[in-house]
Design a binder for these strands. Structure first.
Lengths: 229, 229
DNA sequence: TATATAAGTGTAAAAAAAACACTTTACAAT
DNA sequence: ATTGTAAAGTGTTTTTTTTACACTTATATA
């Protein structure tokens, strides 16, 4: 077997860009950093870096995100590979976009000492290159995902109220949902456990706290469901 | 603005592999070729080649598919980028998988003089590298797609019978559907036009021929639907 | 103790999906 | 000419899912 190299083919730079969605009581947000090298230094950008010879894309995404933001153990999913010839003015570069969902409060500590900042989706600044297009595609994917699989485990604190979960869905789907119908639907999936504790931050009466039944939650992630709401 | 190159980053080979699904009266099939260079020469493989410096991925996919099979004007969609470090034994190579759906009979002429062959999904040979994994992922995507958007325009002849369309859905979803429920559902989308012609190939009585109302079809592709069946 | 605020709860109507079987047509075989 | 055969065509009922909708409860605070 002749193991010559594929000598005629072009080698190309491969970037990985990370779209991190976060959620807190202010709603759905996106994490951006100030780019610290040319071109477009000082402009807002996704967290990005280059794939190395000896790592796969998932690994690169984790390394790059951690390097730029301090965020660890974030599960990211591959979104799409962007390949317009002139997408980067410096040099031909493809970029594989990854996205993830996290609970802002939970990861706040990791983000100190970085230039990373959270932006509400509608107040995000203009982004470099084709990063805005990446974000758009990620939002579309996130919406589709929210309708076909449970969402929230990564975005909410370990204990949360029904209203927080509903707000999360409302932010992602970008529409108001009916309180009772939402509860009925969510309960029909059997992925929630109601605790005997209440959260009194947001109301005088106090709202029951819930956790996810991780086993059932994961089952539903695999089998998918139809959150037609 | 300093337009230095990104000099420290690794450059890597980028392949594009094409998964072509075809449909005819034998059901859903996949197009494969005998690989004509080492390694794995003579083994079955997806249609693949390398991305060039001056083209984007969509263009590369079209070029590669046409070069290897003669197929022209096939609309392919990006599926996923595969990046395991040792996925190609010769040299570090990433591969971006693309997939498309075509009507076998319609493109038969283009495929003469190539080593490309159609295989039923369950009778496909072992494929090189991670190509089987690519095909699996493409099948999963195809199923999801069939449930959320109309499918068939690219896979069926211009005129087709209701039963052909149903068989197409049955092949993709890999389950039997009820004839009457299928017709009612499809008709509710308003994407079909019944012609006054009949097709008598498959039955003595003859079956009405249909075409797609392309405008309504495209609308439904954009807005999506819920083919819960 | 009155008020204000968010939480919690159930039912009825409408829409969608699923289950289900007989008739029609025309060719082929006798 | 009659009968058999093979696929096409056609509606209704039941069940499930979705939607719309409004009042009561708990408690902190004025």
């Amino acid at each position: 077997m002749a193991l010559n190299k594929y000598s005629n083919a072009d080698k190309i730079l491969l970037a990985v860009d990370c779209i991190i969605f976060g959620f807190d009581k202010g709603g759905l947000k996106i994490l951006l950093i100030k780019r610290d090298f040319e071109p477009e230094q000082g402009k807002w950008s996704l967290m990005g870096g280059f794939l190395k010879e000896d790592e796969n894309l998932d690994e690169a995404a984790i390394r790059i995100l951690q390097h730029l933001t301090g965020l660890r153990t974030i599960y990211m999913e591959q979104l799409y590979t962007f390949s317009k010839v002139d997408r980067d003015p410096v040099e031909r570069t493809l970029s594989v976009a990854y996205y993830a969902l996290i609970d802002i409060a939970m990861h706040d500590q990791e983000l100190v000492n970085t230039s990373a900042q959270w932006f509400s989706l509608d107040k995000a600044p203009h982004l470099i290159f084709d990063h805005s297009q990446m974000v758009e595609k990620a939002i579309a994917r996130l919406k589709r995902r929210a309708l076909s699989k449970p969402i929230g485990f990564e975005l909410l604190p370990p204990k949360f109220t029904m209203r927080q979960l509903q707000k999360l869905y409302e932010s992602i789907l970008d529409k108001k949902l009916d309180k009772r119908n939402f509860i009925n639907k969510i309960n029909s999936f059997g992925i929630l456990v109601r605790l005997d504790e209440k959260d009194t931050n947001a109301s005088k009466k106090g709202a029951y706290l819930y956790t996810f039944d991780k086993v059932k939650y994961d089952e539903k992630v695999l089998e998918g469901f139809n959150f037609k709401i």
